[in-house]
Simulated assay, not measured.
Amino acid sequence: MEFTSLSGVVLAGGKSERMGHQDKGLLLFKNEPMALQVSQAFKSVTDYVFINANRNIEQYSALGFDVFSDVEGYSEKGPLSGLFASLNYVSASHLVVSPCDTPCISGAAFLELQMMSKEFPDKIHYLKSTSGSHPLHAILPVASSLLALKMFLDQTGRNSVMAFYEAFGCQEVLWSKDSELLNVNTPNYLK
């Protein structure tokens, strides 16, 4: 597997229960939709940026993105639904993902992931900081990850992102700027 191209997907398909079921990617953080802020951080590393969303498709499209939803039969699997849909949708050799509710993430974090992925293109790479593992800030080899994730979901019935990564083969990438990984999960962060 060679690293030849990279697409980015902002994962915005969750139910947003702690945010009162409001679509987090469209909520404003520092006067800008969070999904847009995450997508701007991708610009230094990706060829294309897409959004995975299961509602408010027109609003996400209005931000200037191609939007796709979870794949029938593979929805309701938590974040793995978004990963599966993303791996199905993109045509690049590698996919970088980030959740829509981490608007402080920088392009430098994705450059670090990209550097490691170019060195070891067959593995999944994800960020780890002092606050712990951040498996949804990751780069995955598309073709092999898609096949492995389909098998993982079909055979194990598990919905754990880390369990899939460990079964596939992964490597953490240390990121020292923990504040960039702020997860805006509740309304009090928006004030």
Rank of each mutant, 00 (worst) to 15 (best):
D70L: 10
D70Y: 05
V71I: 15
V71W: 09
E72R: 14
E72Y: 09
E72W: 07
G73L: 13
Y74P: 02
Y74D: 06
Y74Q: 05
S75K: 14
S75H: 07
E76F: 02
E76Y: 01
E76D: 10
E76V: 00
K77C: 14
K77N: 13
K77M: 13
K77H: 08
G78R: 13
P79Y: 12
L80Y: 04
L80W: 07
S81Q: 07
S81H: 07
S81N: 08
S81Y: 09
G82T: 13
L83I: 09
L83G: 00
F84I: 11
F84P: 06
S86T: 08
S86Y: 03
L87H: 05
L87D: 08
L87W: 08
N88Y: 08
V90N: 06
V90C: 05
V90H: 10
V90L: 06
V90G: 12
V90E: 03
V90P: 02
S91W: 00
S91L: 02
S91I: 00
S91H: 03
A92E: 09
A92L: 05
A92D: 13
A92T: 07
A92G: 07
S93D: 01
S93T: 11
S93F: 01
S93I: 01
H94Q: 11
V96P: 14
V96T: 15
V96L: 14
V97Q: 04
S98H: 09
P99Q: 12
P99K: 06
C100R: 06
C100A: 15
D101Q: 09
P103D: 06
P103S: 12
P103T: 10
P103A: 08
P103Q: 06
C104G: 04
C104Q: 11
I105N: 13
I105C: 15
I105M: 14
S106H: 01
S106N: 00
A108Y: 02
A109H: 03
F110A: 09
F110R: 11
L111G: 02
L111E: 14
L111S: 09
L111C: 09
E112R: 15
L113W: 04
L113D: 04
Q114Y: 00
Q114D: 00
Q114I: 00
Q114R: 07
M115P: 02
M115C: 11
M115Q: 14
M115F: 13
M116E: 12
S117M: 10
S117C: 08
K118R: 13
E119S: 13
F120C: 03
P121Q: 09
P121D: 02
D122R: 04
K123E: 03
I124F: 00
I124G: 04
I124W: 00
Y126A: 10
Y126M: 04
L127F: 12
L127Y: 02
L127H: 05
L127E: 08
L127N: 05
L127R: 10
L127S: 15
